[in-house]
């Protein structure tokens, strides 16, 4: 499934690593994220396969190239080129204090639901998204469940004549 590493001029300036099934995994700063995706689109990447967000609250959960400054959140965008039959993955570091990245809606209308999901479950705001509302959870839900500091939740088991656990 490994595709040949292609010449991707849009990613030249950024640190990249190799991985199974992708031509390149690039670490793009969030200020350049939208522009890089725009260049990749012009370069033959017709479709966004997936956009999701990861909460790296546990700092040693990953190793990054030296040039990348780690931040708590990471937005992961998987792009697909049908004409060249390769995939490219962009990983964008998003700080906790200001969890905002540009929306890709102007380039690919199909990210609408995926970005809403990332907002709903991880709490990343996408600047320029047309309708950033919750998609899977009810509107009045508090918090973002896929953050690592959000408990997994449980239903207490209650037995007769004993007080239930708190």
């Amino acid at each position: 499934m490994t595709a040949p590493v292609a010449e991707l001029s849009a990613l030249e300036a950024y640190p990249t690593v190799a991985g199974p099934g992708v031509a390149a995994i690039a670490f793009v700063p969030r200020s350049d994220y939208k522009a890089v995706v725009g260049q990749l689109k012009a370069d033959g990447f017709e479709m966004v396969s997936d956009v999701c967000a990861v909460d790296y609250l546990v700092a040693d959960a990953r190793t990054l190239p030296d040039a990348v400054r780690p931040a708590r959140f990471e937005v992961v965008c998987n792009l697909l080129s049908m004409s060249r039959r390769i995939r490219v993955r962009l990983r964008v570091q998003v700080p906790e204090s200001d969890p905002v990245v540009d929306s890709l809606f102007e380039h690919y209308a199909g990210v609408e639901a995926m970005e809403r999901e990332a907002f709903d479950l991880v709490g990343i705001r996408f600047a320029g998204h047309p309708d950033l509302s919750r998609i899977l959870l009810p509107e009045e839900w508090e918090g973002h469940p896929l953050r690592k500091d959000y408990g997994i939740g449980r239903v207490p088991v209650q037995f007769k004549s004993t007080p239930g656990p708190r």
């Binding site: 396969s49 997936d50 999701c52 990861v54 909460d55 546990v58 040693d60 959960a61 990953r62 992961v76 998987n78 995926m114 896929l146």
Partner: peptide, 19 residues
């Protein structure tokens, strides 16, 4: 159908996302 899997080296996925 896509699966994005991030592992921190432990016996449980650090993050699993299904497209």
């Amino acid at each position: 159908l896509g699966c994005y899997l991030a592992s921190d080296g432990g016996p449980k996925p650090y993050r699993m996302h299904i497209r």
